[in-house]
Write a protein that binds this DNA or RNA. Structure first.
Length: 938
RNA sequence: GGGUGCUUAGCUCAGUUGGAAGAGCGCUAGCCUUACAAGCUGGAUGUCGGCGGUUCGAACCCGUCAGCACCCACCA
């Protein structure tokens, strides 16, 4: 079979993937007798659109691990699926409808959800199609969606259990409220950025002004909330105000009178030392309100407009309009004591970007710090799993981040006033009593038991999307309520899974919550290892986002994309079309020629190479190009092998020669086998440590720098100059090594290795021809490591480098072959290699170097080399002098070290010995150069 | 306010119990040498952020300063 002259990935990828999938190669290993289980849960991508570079990165790592352990013979499951992503998906669909002039509210809940399901179908398919293009090998037959029937049942069941256990509760609490989405969001969904604002100083007149001063001045960044003030507080020890504690002030604009209270939360140094207390609209004030049993006055509606609890004048005003009006009115009353610029952190909704409003609403919570039936809270248990080492983080540094968060965790607000998501399984009686149950019938039964027989109304709130995500480790494995009494093979084998591969950005959102929920509900940890990787950023280190217009679609790196198409893609569908011009300009500058097609393998290799622990990745297109070239190198090395190995029968004989006792394998063969074994062992270490960067580097280094640069060149010599038997033995070794390399590389480069393996494996006499995926992964065979041949080849390489260097210095054309004279021991078998590798016309080994010539010389250890050419005497003299000077530097350094008594006395013996050897070698070499220099002198 | 990470060649980054500074890309000189010009061969390039300390010896350990990035909490 003839291979194309260069590697063309696209056709190969399209050909292999469907076959792998159809023949069931990705299917989970469910052999109960094989105790070696390997399982990865795919962090389910959101069905909000398409996959981005971060997914490509994340999935490449998982696929490499999965293919590796699968080839090693483990019972392997990569569990795929997608996430309904409540808020995010609802927003996407809402915006699409808006673009068509349809509003969600006008459409109604039922119709709207139909639209979302349509979108889910479309987006989910896009995502799984993209994953297939990346070559991923999850068990697609087990694909799950967080709102599948089974998973939804798990959501309901766990909710009811946690409620019955007292770990889920409902209550009126101050929560982060998104006034645009009309829903509560969790602490994690609020992002605070520092913004420019103002600090207003407002006078609150004292009710009883018999004592000076006549008013207290409070400082606030949100003057509109004064309408909901219920107190003014000062520090109990603050001498300025101590006498006023317990007295009252007039709350301007409202006619209300509110008390002056003392609380040591107040920092007397900040502002005026007087703080207005608005328990219904501020988290700290809320706590104060509870402590002092103050009333809560809500002056905002869920739209963030002024409510009916406020003076009539302001009712219905938007919160920011009200702010202006109130400041103006206070000023008019002479109660505005001053305004100053002030930087403050503004909390905004992660999804909509609007300013979050703390709002008193009825919500559902998971109690994270309350002891459960076994006496420990779920956060405590999650901390223990990691502290005990049962769950390990890679890199381990993330443990402290994890601990810090769990040690300060608040109860988790899990209710969302949205439509898209799991409905909370609760029913209300007309009296407001709540009945949490698995279904309406059960709710009715529970109500009756409580003495209520009236109508029941289902809760309309849905659950935070992360609630179902937290159950993913067991919900996807067909967990049932009677677990563990009844289990199944998948649960037995794959809970806990082996490793979770994820970005640090969702350690709190997802990782910690999976651990809390899985441990509490199943008694098992969800996974043993957590491999935390960085985020993919653009070439400037900026986070990739649609609005910045710097996103890359992994598929575009695989297939390539022309500039116009890329510009179109980046500028269409922008939330803020004003950015389009800037985005277009930058895109045209950065990708003036578009993006060439690199192929999946090259992209995967790039991701892996960049996966250094503990840092984000500035994605570098040039790296991708370099690894595309690497694929091409592998391709052409295989072409070379195929051109030299006509058929398998030839190699059958070669096998006997290599294994028989007729003669020892050739140096090159012994060496490459040895080097291969070291590579296999090293790669196994990198897999175990999750060092994908080093894994890729090790493979690259071996394939290019050893196998291609040296071994193949030596093979050429052996095939040309050896006996037919020797040539066959070498061909055999060549094919065996290549075949092993392909298996070694398969988890990283699935497509090219499969394509090449199909033609190489028959020559190597491999039995199975179905797929490289089904082969054994190469296991290290330390007994094949041969230090002697490694040392020999190292010396040969050094001689080659010396010759090539001389040639370079002498400015010889690569085409010009010249004679070499050598003096030293054990050189005879190097001759043919040196001739070929250093472009020599002949190699002569002599007892004494000729001294009547001004030819250039080099020295490698004990060996002297001379290129038998005439050179300019002055130039050669200069070259030698320079060389001697360089060596003298080294000698001086070594001598200084050895002259240091402390060094000799305290450094380990082998270090001292090494230094002595170096010194001796340098000295000998320098001496030889000096002798040569003397000969040159007229 | 608390915490974390980073700073090594022009760029992006490795550097594995402290023991002669590395890779890819780029640059440069020359080569279509029958696997590969997506290639081959040679070459140039670094006070390893600054300053102290520990040590016979520090890119690596400790302290400190500076710059960059991020996370958590948030003083109205």
């Amino acid at each position: 079979m003839e291979l194309a002259k260069s590697f063309e990935p696209s056709e190969i990828e399209k050909r292999w993937y469907p076959g792998w999938e159809e023949r069931g190669f990705f299917k989970a290993g469910l052999d109960p007798d094989n105790p070696d289980a390997f399982c990865i849960l795919l962090p389910p991508p959101n069905v909000t659109g398409t996959l981005h570079m971060g997914h490509g990165f994340n999935q490449t790592i998982m696929d490499t691990l999965t293919r590796y352990y699968r080839m090693r013979g483990d019972n392997t499951l990569w569990q795929p699926g997608t996430d309904h992503a409540g808020i995010a998906t609802q927003i996407v669909v809402e915006r699409q409808l808006e673009a068509q002039g349809i509003s969600r509210l006008a459409l109604g809940r039922e119709k709207f959800l139909e639209k979302v399901w349509e979108w889910k179908e479309y987006s989910g398919n896009t995502i799984t199609r993209q994953m297939r293009r990346l070559g991923t090998s999850p068990d697609w037959s087990r694909e799950r969606f967080t709102m599948d029937a089974g998973l939804s049942e798990t959501v309901t069941e766990t909710f009811v259990r946690l409620y019955d256990e007292g770990l889920i509760y409902r209550g009126k609490r101050l929560v982060n409220w998104d006034p645009v989405l009309h829903t509560a969001v969790s602490d994690l969904e609020v992002v605070s950025e520092e913004e420019d604002g103002f600090m207003w100083h407002i006078r609150y007149p004292l009710s009883d002004d018999s004592d000076a001063p006549a008013a207290l001045t409070v400082a606030t960044t949100r003057p509109e909330t004064m309408l909901g003030d219920v107190a003014v507080m000062v520090h109990p020890e603050d001498a300025r105000y101590r006498a006023l504690i317990g007295k009252k002030v007039q709350l301007p604009l409202t006619g209300r009178e509110i008390p002056i209270i003392a609380d040591d939360y107040v920092d007397p140094e900040f502002g005026t030392g007087c703080v207005k207390v608005t328990p219904a609209h501020d988290f700290n004030d809320h706590a104060v309100g509870l402590r002092h049993k103050l009333p809560f006055v809500s002056i905002l509606t869920l739209d963030a407009k002024i409510s009916d609890a406020a003076p009539e004048k302001y009712r219905g005003m938007d919160r920011f309009d009200a702010r202006k009006a109130i400041v103006a009115d206070l000023d008019a009353l002479g109660l505005l004591a001053g305004v100053e610029k002030h930087k403050l952190k503004i909390p905004r909704s992660d999804r909509t970007g609007v300013v979050i409003e703390p709002m008193l609403t009825d919500q559902w919570f998971v109690a994270t710090t309350k002891p459960s039936s076994d006496g420990k809270s779920i956060s405590e248990k999650a901390l223990e799993c990691v502290a005990s080492g049962e769950i390990r983080f890679f890199p381990a540094a993330w443990v402290s981040t994890y601990n810090q968060w769990l040690n300060n965790i608040q109860d988790w607000c899990i209710s969302r006033q949205l439509w898209w998501g799991h409905l909370i399984p609760a029913w209300y009686g007309d009296d407001g009593a709540v009945y949490v149950a698995r279904n309406e019938a059960e709710a009715r039964a529970r109500a009756e038991k409580a003495g209520y027989t009236g109508a029941l109304t289902r809760e309309t709130d849905v659950l935070d999307t992360w609630y179902s995500s937290a159950l993913w480790p067991f919900s996807t494995l067909d967990w049932t309520p009677d677990y563990p009494a009844r289990s199944n093979t998948a649960l037995d084998l794959y809970l806990p899974s082996t490793v979770l591969v994820t970005g640090f950005d969702i350690i709190f959102f997802w990782v910690a919550r999976m651990i809390m929920m899985t441990k509490h509900l199943t008694g098992k940890i969800p996974f043993k290892h957590v491999y935390v990787h960085g985020l993919i950023r653009d070439a400037e280190g900026q986070k990739m986002s649609k609005s910045k217009g710097n996103v890359l679609d992994p598929i575009d790196l695989i297939d390539g994309i022309d500039l116009e198409e890329l510009v179109k893609k980046r500028t269409s569908g922008l939330l803020n079309p004003k950015h389009a011009g800037e985005i277009e300009k930058r895109t045209r500058k950065e990708f003036s020629a578009g993006i060439p097609a690199f192929g999946t393998d090259a992209l995967r290799f790039t991701f892996l190479s960049l996966a250094s622990p503990g840092r984000d990745i500035k994605f570098d297109l040039h790296r991708c190009e370099g690894y595309r070239n690497f694929c091409n190198k592998l391709w052409n090395a295989s072409r070379f092998a195929l051109m030299n190995v006509p058929d398998a029968s030839d190699l059958q004989a070669g096998t006997e020669e290599i294994t028989g006792s007729a003669s020892e394998p050739a140096l090159a063969d012994r060496w490459i086998v040895s080097a291969l074994q070291r590579t296999v062992a090293e790669m196994a270490r990198h897999y175990a440590d999750y060092r994908f960067d080093l894994l890729a580097h090790t493979l690259y280094e071996f394939v290019w720098n050893e196998f291609c640069d040296w071994y193949l060149e030596m093979v050429k010599v052996q095939i040309q100059e050896g006996t037919p038997e020797e040539a066959r033995a070498t061909r055999r070794c060549l094919v065996d090594t290549l075949e092993t390399i392909l298996r070694l590389a398969h988890p990283l480069l699935p497509f090219i290795t499969e394509e090449l393996w199909q033609v190489v494996a028959p020559l190597a006499g491999r039995k199975t021809r179905d797929s490289i995926m089904l082969c054994d992964y190469p296991a290290a065979q330390p007994e094949k490591i041969d230090p002697a041949s490694e040392e020999r080849v190292r010396r040969l390489k050094d001689l080659c480098y010396a010759c090539r260097n001389l040639r370079g210095e002498m400015k010889l054309s690569p085409a010009q072959k010249v004679p070499l004279i050598l003096r030293g021991d054990d050189l005879a078998d190097f001759v043919p290699y040196l001739k070929a590798l250093a472009k020599l016309s002949e190699v002569r080994i002599v007892e004494t170097m000729p001294d009547d010539t001004n030819a250039p010389i080099a020295i490698v250890g004990e060996t002297r080399l001379m290129l038998k050419i005439m050179v300019d005497l002055a130039a050669e003299t200069a070259r030698l002098s320079k060389e001697i000077a360089r060596i003298n530097d080294e000698i001086a350094k070594a001598k200084a070290k050895l002259a240091n008594a402390s060094f000799v006395a305290r450094a380990p013996a082998h270090i001292v010995a090494q230094e002595e050897t170096r010194l001796a070698e340098f000295a000998a070499t320098a001496e030889k150069f000096r002798a040569q220099l003397a000969r040159l002198a007229p």
